[in-house]
């Protein structure tokens, strides 16, 4: 791999919950502009890793650096302001709001509308409001949800909800996007489309994308680089080909007998 700029870096991150070490001495370096994957069996600590990176958990030890700046002590909203956006494993849309409103809420961090700007139907507030609405609508067009703009977010089919969640994350104008199991519950065709979609938004918005995924087809299909977690420990990393051949990974996923049989 050629020498490229680092977007995000973790240094010896350890996360403990009481006696349980969900993440142990986790150090990675993500290159700017790449699409990378984080895999591992259930309960391996993948989501925990995302939660640490996005400021939801303060790591017990270690540091998270984004473009050279230390994020470790920052709260989720500050991390988002720095340029990292995420989606959730169990979709978390604002279910009482419309599709358009969901994306507009994502716009708030870059175009904050203050409460005192809201009463007047003209002036700065109204201008901002219009700007936000248009921007949100454009984003919806980008993810092909514009025709559903006024639908209630909760009424969308599953796949559309996933895309909406990504659109909402994009509305915060991130440079780094974390997706937690975006293909969960999708059929192969949908997953295929999702892969193309992830590639597309990477190009379109100049992103670095990191995602957690159980569907190996998706992971091997789009990732340039992969990290494998097991019981909170990083057991392997490398290009998809290397990971596929790595006996430790196979063992972690299938148990020891499988390796012996092979």
């Amino acid at each position: 791999m050629t020498e490229r700029e680092t977007a995000l870096e973790t240094q010896g991150v350890t996360m403990r919950f009481g006696g349980l070490t969900a993440l142990h001495d986790f150090s990675i370096r993500v290159h700017r502009g790449s699409i990378v994957g984080l895999i591992g069996p259930n309960g391996a600590g993948k989501t925990t890793c995302f939660n640490v990176m996005t400021g939801f958990y303060r790591p017990t030890e270690g540091k998270v650096l984004f473009e050279g700046r230390d994020l470790t002590a920052k709260g989720p909203h500050e991390v988002c302001r720095e340029g990292i956006a995420r989606t959730f494993q169990n979709i978390r849309l604002f279910s009482n709001e419309t599709v358009l409103q969901n994306v507009m809420i994502g716009c708030h961090v870059r175009t904050p509308l203050n409460w005192w700007e809201t009463p007047l139907p003209f002036g700065v507030g109204a201008k901002k409001e219009k700007e936000i609405r248009e921007k949100a609508y454009h984003l919806l067009e980008e993810v092909e949800l514009a025709h559903l703009a006024d639908e209630c977010a909760a009424s969308l089919p599953y796949g559309a909800q996933r895309r909406l969640e990504i659109a909402r994350a994009l509305a915060t104008e991130p440079r780094f996007l974390l997706l937690d199991e975006p293909a969960a519950g999708m059929n192969p065709q949908e997953s295929q489309k999702l892969m193309a979609f992830i590639r597309h938004i990477r190009e379109r918005f100049n992103l670095t994308v990191m995602f957690i995924e159980h569907d190996m087809k998706v992971v091997m299909g789009v990732c340039e680089y992969i990290w494998v977690l097991d019981y909170g420990v990083l057991i392997a990393e490398g290009a998809p080909k290397e990971i596929q051949a790595d006996p430790r990974v196979i063992e972690a996923y299938l148990g020891e007998e499988a390796v012996a049989d092979a």
Binding site: A85, H108, T172
Partner: peptide, 28 residues
């Protein structure tokens, strides 16, 4: 006016899902 503006949307977001709102960069 307040609740129908985007600031109102943000308040509703906090009501619906505070965690997601924080992830959206909202200073809850």
């Amino acid at each position: 006016r307040l609740v129908n503006s985007n600031f109102g949307n943000v308040l509703k977001a906090i009501r619906d899902d505070e965690t997601a709102a924080r992830a959206m960069g909202i200073d809850v």
